[in-house]
């Protein structure tokens, strides 16, 4: 009788253990399974460039992911979706969250570089450079110097300092495609300083330098005319008339001519830079912000 009872007890115990094992096994499997499915669904939306919906689904994943199994990935993907939507501040906010959950130094470095890229896109290049300087000093990122130099060169591109950018790309590779493009852009640019100096020496010369011939001729003509008339007034002993013409007409046109020359150079450089940035955005196949 006792043996029978013991046998029943042992069977019951086995049954309870197996049941518990089954319950735990199944519950764990389903929890990770639905999170995995949700991640795949959100990632699919991201791949289909449905960034708004992707953000919603990654946020849903985050909300139900109590153990933060997808904390790093979901924050990163939300940030990238915001980035594609042009919401750079939100992107940085989520990248900062991802930074705290980065599983290793490679992931952390990737996140930092993403933050650099967003700072480039929102034209806070000084912030991008600060981050790159911090990365350079951090010994845990030794061996990633080339990547740091590469992105530093991009900060110069966004600051329209094409010569400095070309120099840095040259450190990475003397035949780097970006080095060649930056050098070309630099060669096509005009120096606002030279334009100003030329127009200071000969009115209109700065405009000729920036290929604005009509404006150069007009500047030269006006300044010559008012100088001549002022001189004529002085020679006729009408000093006050001469001073008024010098001050209100001659100097005004002369100063305007210098400012104009500088403006032409700056505008031309801006056009060249915008064209080149647009070209890089659409045609450059390498890594870009």
């Amino acid at each position: 009788m006792n043996k029978k009872l013991k046998a029943i007890g042992s069977t019951k115990l086995k049954f309870v253990i197996l049941l518990l094992f089954w319950l735990i096994n199944n519950s764990q499997l389903s929890a990770s399974d639905y999170l995995q499915k949700q991640y795949e669904f959100a990632a699919k939306l991201f791949d289909e460039e449905k960034y708004y919906d992707a953000i919603t689904e990654f946020k849903r994943l985050q909300f139900f992911d109590n153990q933060k199994l997808y904390g790093y990935l979901s924050n990163k993907m939300i940030a990238l979706s915001y980035k594609h939507g042009g919401k750079f501040n939100d992107a940085v906010k989520y990248l900062s969250k991802a930074e705290l959950l980065a599983p290793n130094s490679d992931s952390l470095f990737a996140i930092k570089i993403e933050i650099v890229k967003i700072n480039l896109l929102r034209k806070t290049t000084f912030r991008a450079r600060d981050i790159l300087e911090d990365l350079k000093k951090d010994t845990s990122f030794a061996g990633k110097e080339n990547q740091i130099i590469y992105w530093k060169a991009w900060t110069f591109i966004f600051e329209e300092q094409w010569d400095k950018a070309a120099e840095l790309f040259g450190i990475l590779d003397q035949n780097h495609e970006l080095k060649r493009l930056c050098n070309n852009t630099h060669d096509m640019s005009y120096s606002p300083q030279i334009a100003k100096i030329l127009s200071t020496i000969i009115p209109g010369a700065g405009q000729f330098y920036t290929a604005n011939l009509l404006s150069g001729l007009l500047s030269l003509g006006w300044v010559t005319l008012w100088t001549y008339l002022s001189a004529q007034a002085f020679l006729a002993d009408r000093v006050f008339d001469g001073l008024m013409m010098l001050n209100f007409l001659d100097f005004r046109f002369y100063n305007g001519n210098i400012q104009n020359a500088e403006k032409f150079a700056v505008e031309h450089n801006r056009e060249i830079s915008d064209w080149m940035l647009n070209y890089l955005c659409n045609n450059y196949r390498g890594e870009k912000p």
Binding site: W22, N26, S30, K37, F64
Partner: peptide, 18 residues
């Protein structure tokens, strides 16, 4: 058997639980 059945079902229904 029930485990396999449960797992098969979970693939379809757990995603919907969200």
């Amino acid at each position: 058997y029930t485990s396999i059945l449960g797992f098969a079902q979970s693939n379809d229904s757990t995603i919907n639980s969200l």
